[in-house]
Design a protein around this nucleic acid. Structure first.
Length: 902
RNA sequence: GGGCUCGUGGUCUAGCUGGUCAUGACGCGGCCUUUACAAGGCCGAGGUCGGUGGUUCGAACCCGCCCGAGCCCA
């Protein structure tokens, strides 16, 4: 049956990634190969734990997810092999505005039209669908995630942790509720934080509006203000002039009358006025922008609210009440024109701050919100950042600059439906804050009762439930605590962790765009709760750009979907590509770059087949290894040591290149060709198998599917096939799943150098000689297996004579004791500038010139070079000789040998 | 507008605690069927290391300015 081949790993035929990859992805998940076994007592020093930021449920998997998770997986797979226990969890961030907007879009509804519970239910349904699809795609990436260890930020356990966090910070005095101007999205009808805003270039108009001065002794009748937002004039509370603005000095201290509305406001001086913009005179409205907020606070101005929470004009706007801001803008401009107050109007484009989730221009509104105090602990958070290892190190600067530039505390309350509620009630009489009891969490104040019957402050017995929910980041900043099972133990009255060995986490991976808020907020929360920095190290990945090095975005239409890539190329090839960039650097996606990975998979497959024909699978170790075989294993030792260091430092690109070069050039091109001529040799058989097993292990973090297939087909499969004697039918379910947890290559020990010693110089020289002979054949258009009559070699190749002779088909190989008969003349003199420079300084130029013009003398007896009135010791220069072979045959020179062909 | 980062053959990159033929891959041209792989092997062409000024005996590497790109923040 054809299913036989598809079901069982084998080296038959060519490498078929489609069959192989889906086979192992399924089996890894089914047999819990990557499960973190939390029952046993774990040693915190060897457990490797990753806290990965849960993807926001707002759409499908993109290249950033693919790249980020692949990098994390390199680390996870290496650590699992090198150190044993790894927790690589996964979560979904589905409690915020992002998933609400997704639900509204998906179902074509508005949250305002539903009861809160009802809308929440719809959110859960939509998110669940998206999550299932996302999970499937994630598993298609071959990441070694423990799918038993997943969470959603909206689930009750996380709600409890989130509310516990709120109570803990409140008790520590690090949270407060305050009425103050906040950034507001009129579309989502909620306060949002700074990080949720982005700039957008929009078309608009500048309007020059005339304001009259009040009073008989006013210095002039009117002045002009330029504004893009005439609908805000009913909210105007003052006018500002720069103290250095000579033209408008006369206005300071006067009173202005607002056109149409007629209310009067003071004219004040302030340095924050931008004199270059418009007329240099500016109105302050509550609120048009952040500057208005500063003025409002600094000058203790009154509050005039002309725009409500849905961007509709209030009664303060008089005739314009009930209009949207856009309608009011046009209407007011028209009326200003009728009144003769509109002096000019012209089109402009300018940057408008919009809510990143819905692209609606934000407003600023005064409202009562909850804040986490962070400004007073800036130094501590900086210190926490310094304590972590940053990969790459340079990314710490971003974190540092972000903290140094902080100006606002963290606003954590949102006026939304779907989210985790604040566990708070307020006394209906005195507004005293009543917190939920820890043991009752999670609670929803809208349906649950407060833990007291009457207000502890004023004894009033009615309470108002807090309707707000937490900012998404207030929860997603708790992922280390969620992953470690943080909770409050009522008996011991202390916080506990189910898996304390995980905390602090070894690694926190993320893109460089979220250092300033997600990583920062996570450090803030965890540090305040536990007093510890939550991560030992953080790895910052770059962004995938399009083939023109430009950011992928929907509006540019240059998005590449992982689905399309994976339909064409093996996952392992995609992973190999993902390993090509230095961690932290942005790099472009170019389809052709995946070909290198495909080629490597094919090479690994074919080399494995060859090894399988050359040597028995379990050869005995011979008492003595021959030089060529010992040389390979000694080189392998070096490679293992280098690779281990690279992986430990998250230098995946270096590891990838080192391994590829050694595997392809040294093992396949050099050693395998030699091994073909030595297949019955026990020493070679042993070296071949040792190297092959090690290569599979070393490649495993990068190419998990291909290495698993080969490993299972060649090494792990032996026992299984032996026990499976009952029938030859492939359709029968085998017990391979049951043992995969033990037999998988991914749970093997990472290779360690075995201490082989060999004459590396001789091996290197022998390879040079072989490659020189290959080149000779190639240049003379000879087949590579053509016989060479007689070859003489001068150079250190002891022990490798047979290798050279056999692989290059040399009939007679002679090792020369002495350098062959050659006539020499000086071709060039190489100077050792690194010692010459410091010693002779500016004299180096003269020395160079002397050599160039031939005005020098080499004293062979003294071993010195005399040039430019200086005497250079023999360690400072090297004489390159032009050799001419005067004997019979052709001479080829390599780095450290001379080869003569007769 | 400010900060951080990046700019190396046609493309993607290594090198960047300064030291003299700048690494490899992909692509391109030529040659060759070694006991796996021709989607392989060998050889070759192709670079004023973004530009410019400076420090130095010497700069891809250090410093200044400029240009382009990305991210973050105004």
């Amino acid at each position: 049956m054809s299913t036989d081949r598809n079901d069982e790993p084998s080296l038959e035929g060519g490498y078929d990634p489609e069959v192989v990859e889906s086979r192992w992805q399924e089996r890894w998940v089914d047999s819990d190969v990557y499960a973190y076994d939390e029952d046993e007592k774990r040693d915190p020093n060897t457990v490797y734990s990753i806290d990965t930021p849960p993807p926001t449920v707002s759409g499908s998997l993109h290249m950033g997810h693919l790249y980020g998770h692949t990098l994390q997986d390199f680390a996870a797979r290496f650590q699992r092999m090198a150190d044993g226990d790894v927790l690589f969890p996964f979560g979904y961030d589905d409690n915020g505005i992002a998933s609400e907007r997704l639900t509204e879009k998906e179902l074509d509804i508005r949250h305002q039209d539903y009861e809160r519970r009802e809308f929440q239910e719809l959110c859960r349904e939509v998110c669940t669908e998206y999550e299932a699809e996302f999970t499937e795609k994630m598993q298609g990436l071959g990441c070694s995630i423990d799918w038993n260890n997943t969470y959603k930020t909206i689930e009750p356990r996380v709600q409890r942790i989130s509310q516990l966090s709120f109570l803990d910070l409140y008790e520590k005095g690090r949270e407060y509720r305050k009425k103050a101007p906040a950034i507001w999205c009129p579309e989502c009808e909620t306060a949002i934080s700074q990080v949720e805003m982005e700039d957008d270039e929009r078309g608009s108009h500048f309007n020059d509006i005339a304001f009259e001065l009040v009073g008989d002794d006013a210095p002039r009748e009117e002045f002009i203000i330029s504004t893009t937002r005439p609908e805000l004039i009913p909210a105007c509370v003052s006018v500002f002039v720069h103290p250095d603005d000579e033209e408008n000095q006369d206005l300071i201290g006067e009173t202005a009358r607002i056109p149409i509305f007629g209310h009067e406001v003071p004219i004040i001086e302030d340095e924050r006025v931008d004199m270059e913009k418009g007329s240099g005179v500016v109105m302050c409205c509550t609120f048009g922008d952040q500057n208005d907020i500063e003025w409002y606070q600094a000058h203790d101005l009154p509050l005039r609210v002309a725009i409500d929470e849905s961007a509709t004009m209030t009664d303060l706007a008089g005739d314009y009440e009930g209009m949207s801001t856009e309608e009011a803008r046009e209407a007011i401009v028209e009326d200003l024109e009728d009144e003769g107050a509109l002096r000019d109007r012209w089109e402009i484009t300018h940057a408008v701050q919009v809510h990143e989730r819905c692209d609606t221009a934000v407003e600023y509104r005064v409202s009562k919100q909850w804040y986490v105090e962070i400004l007073d602990h800036k130094e501590e958070y900086l210190e926490a950042g310094r304590e972590m290892d940053w990969y790459p190190e340079k990314m710490f600067t971003r974190y540092k600059h972000w903290i140094e530039g902080l100006e606002w505390d963290w606003l954590i309350s949102r006026q939304r439906d779907s989210g985790i509620p604040f566990p708070v009630w307020y006394c209906a009489d005195c507004d005293h804050e009543v917190m939920a009891a820890r043991e009752d969490l999670p609670v929803d104040p809208l349906s649950d009762e407060p833990p007291v019957d009457s207000c502890p402050e004023c004894a009033h017995d009615e309470f108002v439930a807090e309707e707000d929910v937490f900012d998404t980041w207030a929860t997603s900043s708790l992922t280390p605590l969620i992953n470690a099972g943080w909770d409050w133990d009522a008996d011991s009255e202390a916080f506990t962790m189910d898996n304390p060995e995980l905390y602090p986490f070894d690694l926190r991976p993320q893109g460089h765009d979220i250092i300033s808020f997600w990583l920062f907020h996570t450090i803030v929360k965890c540090y305040e709760h536990t007093g510890e920095v939550p991560f030992d190290a953080t790895m910052i990945n770059g962004h995938i750009l399009d083939e023109n090095r430009e950011k992928m975005s929907k509006s540019r239409g240059n998005i590449v979907a992982p689905d399309e890539v994976l339909a064409e190329y093996p996952v392992d090839a995609v992973r190999f590509w993902a390993a090509s960039a230095a961690v932290g650097d942005d790099f472009p996606y170019q389809e052709k770059d995946l070909i290198a990975g495909e080629k490597l998979l094919r090479k690994l497959w074919n080399a494995s087949k060859l090894v399988d024909t050359l040597a028995p699978r379990e050869p005995d170790e011979p008492a003595d290894l021959e030089a060529i075989d010992r040389w390979l294993l000694a080189e392998l030792d070096d490679a293992v040591a280098d690779l281990t260091a690279h992986f430990e430092d998250y230098e995946f690109a270096k590891a990838r290149d080192r391994l590829r070069t050694f595997f392809w050039n040294t093992f396949c091109d050099d050693y395998l060709e030699i091994a073909k001529t030595r297949e019955d040799n026990p020493s070679t058989q042993y070296a071949l198998r040792t190297a092959h097993r090690t290569f599979l292990e070393l490649w495993a973090p990068f190419l998990p599917h291909a290495t698993e297939e080969i490993w299972q087909a060649v090494y792990a499969g032996e026992a299984r096939r032996a026990s499976d004697t009952s029938s030859g039918e492939g359709s029968e379910p085998r017990d391979s799943e049951a043992t995969l947890e033990d037999s998988s290559i991914h749970v093997r020990d990472w290779p360690a150098p075995q201490g082989y010693e060999a004459d590396l110089e001789a091996g290197e020289t022998a390879m040079e000689v072989i490659s020189a002979l290959r080149r000779y054949k190639s240049e003379n258009q000879l087949p590579l297996n053509a016989d060479l009559e007689s070859v003489s070699v001068y150079g250190p190749v002891d022990g490798f004579e047979d290798a050279i002779r056999n692989v290059m088909h040399v009939r007679e190989l002679t090792l020369l004791e002495d350098e062959p008969e050659i006539s020499t003349e000086v071709a060039e003199i190489d100077l050792d500038y690194s010692t010459l420079g410091p010693k002779f300084g500016s004299k180096v130029g003269e020395i160079d010139a002397g050599i160039e013009s031939g005005e020098y003398e080499i004293d062979e007896n003294e071993g010195v070079l005399r040039v430019a009135d200086e005497e250079l010791e023999d360690d400072l220069f090297e004489v390159e000789l032009e050799r001419t072979y005067s004997g019979d045959g052709e001479m080829i020179e390599t780095e450290s040998a001379v080869v003569i062909l007769d």
